[in-house]
């Protein structure tokens, strides 16, 4: 995990350094004169030797100092922390929806044991994965914003203060994010549970007199949910890291929209800081899922290979 993080850090740093051309030149365009370029170079620190730059950046990052955004002239760290007020509730909201729908749905479908149900779910879930979430977002906006007028579109929300308005503003984005994720997770729940129901321990549980319900919930589901945890972790990390497109559709001032803005302005310190933040979140959440695994399933020993498969 530490090696992975280090690699990502190195990657993020060097992707902006190894490129042909000078970041200062790329940002200023061809019309900039020599003194402007030199000024930006010294501001970016690209006039110093590479190892020196890397050490400086890494030392800053460890202290929580990711530099200053060129476009907004604010500390990158502060900008990211401000945006968490949107991205974290959005992620929690969306993941709660995914769990609340996909697990019961997956269980129901696994127990249905009808060829027709199985087949139609297989197609439906793949359709759910194929639908672009930003299109779903537009359709939701049309339905709830334009036709039904339940949710005002384009209202400005004070994310730090107004909890009710925040929740209302996050509802449609959360649904749009949850739909494809639900399709994926329900597939895993169903597939996992169907496999578990065939296992010998289920036969044993039933023959010792456990009711089918109890056997499913106590034994099979617990085992079936193991791989689901991983998928949920990945999805959750993706949203906290920034639901890039959905935040753009709804103009939600979260991490994802900040990244799009940063990329559009080629604000390299901001992009780098965001990429680092995102990588750390993903790696940390993966690690948390691994820990959770050990709590759910005591058989999982540290040092086992989680990479194969």
């Amino acid at each position: 995990m530490i090696i992975t993080t280090l690699l990502v850090v190195v990657m993020i740093f060097f992707i902006f350094r190894v490129i042909p051309g000078d970041p200062a030149l790329i940002m200023l365009g061809t019309e900039a004169d020599e003194s402007q370029v030199a000024a930006l170079r010294s501001r970016l620190g690209t006039d110093r030797p590479l190892p020196d730059q890397f050490a400086g950046w890494l030392a800053g990052a460890l202290r929580g100092d990711l530099g200053v955004s060129l476009r907004f002239n604010q500390p990158v760290t502060k900008m990211i922390v401000d945006r968490l007020a949107v991205s974290v509730p959005l992620a929690l909201f969306a993941i709660a929806l995914v769990i609340a729908i996909s697990i019961p749905l997956g269980v129901l479908l696994a127990l249905a044991r009808s060829r027709l149900v199985e087949l139609s779910f297989s197609y439906l879930s793949q359709l759910g994965m194929a639908v672009p979430s930003f299109w779903v977002a537009l359709l939701l906006m049309m339905l709830f914003g334009v036709v039904l007028r339940w949710i005002p579109l384009g209202e400005t929300v004070n994310w730090q203060r107004d909890a009710v308005a925040s929740v209302r503003a996050l509802m449609l984005p959360a649904i749009a994010i949850a739909l494809p994720a639900t399709a994926i997770v329900a597939r895993y729940v169903r597939g996992g549970l169907v496999d578990q129901l065939r296992q010998n321990y289920m036969r044993a549980a039933l023959s010792k007199g456990l009711s089918f319900r109890r056997a499913v919930y106590r034994h099979a589901l617990r085992n079936a949910l193991m791989p689901v945890t991983t998928v949920l972790g990945v999805i959750f990390a993706d949203i906290v890291a920034g639901a890039v497109i959905i935040e753009t559709v709804f103009a939600l001032p979260g991490i994802g929209l900040l990244l799009v803005t940063a990329v559009s302005y080629r604000d390299f310190p901001l992009i780098q800081g965001l990429a680092l933040y995102i990588a750390v979140v993903v790696v940390a959440l993966n690690f948390a899922v691994d820990l959770l695994y050990r709590v759910i399933d005591p058989r999982v020993r540290p040092g086992g290979s989680a990479r194969d498969g």
Binding site: T4, T5, V8, M11, A237, D238, A241, G242, V244, I245, L259, A275, I278, A279, V282, V283, N286
Partner: peptide, 8 residues
């Protein structure tokens, strides 16, 4: 590479 979401 996988530590960063694809879109990122």
């Amino acid at each position: 590479l996988l530590a960063l979401p694809g879109i990122v």
